[in-house]
Design a protein around this nucleic acid. Structure first.
Length: 264
DNA sequence: AGTACCACCTGACGGC
DNA sequence: TGCCGTCAGGTGGTAC
C-alpha cells in the first residue's frame, strides 16, 4: 500500500484518531522494524506523552510527540496503521502497539518487516540525512524540471528515485505515465519541456485523486489503469491488452497502444 | 550516473 | 496434500 497517497491517508487517519491522547503503554512486538533506537528507548520516549501533530514527506510519516521529538514511520511494502479498541481487532502482523488512556490502540502492522520506525529530533535533518528529494506533491514545476534535467535513463526510474523526488512508487508511476500516454522506458532527456510539464501535471493529478479516495483503487476514476493491473487485463481506454516489462527490476504495466516513446 | 543483481522478510498462488 | 518456484505497492548495498 505505501506510496505517497497511502501514507497521506495514514497521516489523516492518525489525525482523526490518535492525537492529544495520553500514551500509557507501548509494546514493540518486533524490534526488527526499529532503526537507530531500541524497544526500551522507544517505550520510554512515548510513555506518558501524546501525539500532537503529524507531517509527511514522500513515503515517510512523522508523528510529533509532546516532548518535541518525532516518531518516524516508513511502511515498506506491506505496512499500515489500525486504530481499534478491542484486542480481537489487533491486526495479524502488528509490530508496534501504542495504547492510549482511553482504552484504544494504534497498531503499526507490517507483514514483511520491510518497514522502519525511528525517532528523530528534526524532520529537515532527517530528510537531508536520507538524501530525499522534495515531496512529490509539494515540489514546484521549476524544481521538478531542474531535478529531472540532471537525470538520465528512463522516465520511470527517474520518477521513482526518492532522491530526485519523494513519494512516487511502482504503482503510481505507472498510472502517471499511463495518464500522459508516455512509454515508461522513454529516456528522460528526450522529453521536451512542454511534455515534461504534462508529466508533472499528471503526477499532481493522479496523486491528489488517489488521496481523495483514501488511496482505494476500487474508487479510482474509470480512466485509471491501476485497477486493471493484472496479467491479461485490458486498457481502460479500449480493448487493447496491457503489457508488462521489467524496468529497474520492477514489473511495469503499460498500454502499448496509448503509451508511446515519443509524443506525436 | 546508469543498470543488474542480491538481500532483507512473509505469504499467496499456480504447477506438478 | 505438499513441495517449489515466483511474485509482491520498498530500500540499500554491491559490482560493472
Amino acid at each position: 500500500m505505501p506510496e505517497l497517497p497511502d501514507v497521506e491517508t495514514f497521516r489523516r487517519y492518525v489525525n482523526s484518531t490518535s492525537l492529544h491522547k495520553t500514551i500509557n503503554n507501548v509494546k514493540v512486538k518486533s524490534a526488527k522494524v526499529l532503526d537507530g533506537t531500541s524497544a526500551k528507548n522507544l517505550s520510554k520516549t512515548l510513555q506518558g506523552e501524546k501525539f500532537t501533530n503529524t507531517r509527511r514527506h514522500g513515503k515517510h510519516l512523522f508523528l510529533q510527540i509532546s516532548n518535541g521529538q518525532w516518531l518516524m514511520m516508513h511502511f515498506g511494502m506491506t505496512g499500515s496503521l489500525h486504530y481499534f479498541k478491542d484486542m480481537d481487532d489487533d491486526p495479524k502482523h502488528d509490530r508496534l502497539l501504542i495504547s492510549f488512556e482511553n482504552g484504544y490502540h494504534l497498531a503499526y502492522d507490517c507483514q514483511r518487516l520491510l518497514g522502519k520506525i525511528s525517532l528523530t529530533e528534526d524532520i529537515d535533518s532527517f530528510i537531508t540525512d536520507k538524501n530525499l528529494g522534495d515531496d512529490a506533491l509539494a515540489i514546484s514545476w521549476d524544481s521538478f524540471k531542474g531535478s529531472l534535467k540532471k537525470k538520465r535513463g528512463s522516465i520511470k526510474s527517474a520518477l521513482m528515485d526518492q532522491k530526485t523526488l519523494a513519494g512516487v512508487g511502482n504503482i503510481y508511476v505507472d498510472e502517471i505515465l499511463f495518464q500522459v500516454g508516455i512509454h515508461p522506458k522513454t529516456a528522460v532527456n528526450s522529453i521536451n519541456e512542454a511534455y515534461l510539464e504534462e508529466v508533472f501535471e499528471s503526477m499532481r493529478d493522479v496523486l491528489s485523486k488517489a488521496i481523495d479516495v483514501q488511496a482505494d483503487p476500487s474508487e479510482f476514476p474509470p480512466s485509471f489503469m491501476t485497477p486493471h493491473r493484472r496479467s491479461d487485463q485490458q486498457c481502460p481506454n479500449g480493448d487493447e491488452k496491457l503489457k508488462t516489462v521489467k524496468i529497474s527490476g520492477r514489473t511495469t504495466y503499460f498500454c502499448p497502444k496509448h503509451q508511446k516513446k515519443l509524443k506525436k
